[in-house]
Amino acid sequence: MSEITTETLTVRDVELTLRRAGEGETLLLLHGANGSMSWLPVFEALAENYHVILPDHPGFGDTEAPGWMDNISDVSYFYLDVIEALGLDQFHLAGHSMGGWIAAEIGVRDAHRIKSLTLISAAGIRVDGTPMGDLFAWSPEETVGHVFAQKSFRDQALAMEPNEAQIEVMLRNRQMAARLCWTPRLHNPDLRKWLHRLDLPTLILWGDSDGIFPEPYAHAYHELIPGSELEVYENCGHVPMAEARDAFLGRLQAFTQGAA
């Protein structure tokens, strides 16, 4: 097992906390509104084949938010600066949920350093007639019911007793997610107009029981991104890295290796 290192990278006025592990082609992982924990089930496994980088977005986890970061567009341009600061070129980019939205926004702005793009249960677009779930209004029990499809994962999530420090991180994550995503809710009305610019190998992974972005969101992304591939996992909610872990890992690795 490769060693995980945590470091901070100064980009503009942000001290960005990021975890690194593994060797090989670089895979940059962008987390969702719930913070970097959603990537944990697969982080080490991915580090066996890739040089994996997992930052805490500004305002999430261990990274402080700068006062000027008001929306996902700001976050996306910021990550273009991060990519330059890290000297990344021909890397794989994968984003989950809100992180998928950020990944798509980065890609439509400048994809020339990106070798492949994977969008998992991604925010960013609205599908009219299929309301997205309201994660800001749900009780903890309702949230778990919408995020996970399988009882074992629901039970596990409900049994979690976060300590004070973890509660503080959860509250900070939630506050920054609201700041960035409350309205327009979890999407950019203009993004659809520009997804055709994603002229690079793109994979869309989704759970058929996602209670936040129901399956039609996956098909809409698939239709809007030319040449994209789509895989939908059965009996899987909003976090395929957990509920469809092995299939997810296999598909992501096969896709990125094929995207040479």
Binding site: E164, L171, A178
Partner: peptide
């Protein structure tokens, strides 16, 4: 009003929310 609806994120300080949650 349940807390989720009464105290949306950002409306109240993190320290107050933490005290309520704890």
């Amino acid at each position: 009003i349940p807390n989720e609806l009464l105290l949306p994120p950002g409306y109240t300080s993190i320290s107050s929310l933490k005290a309520i949650r704890l």
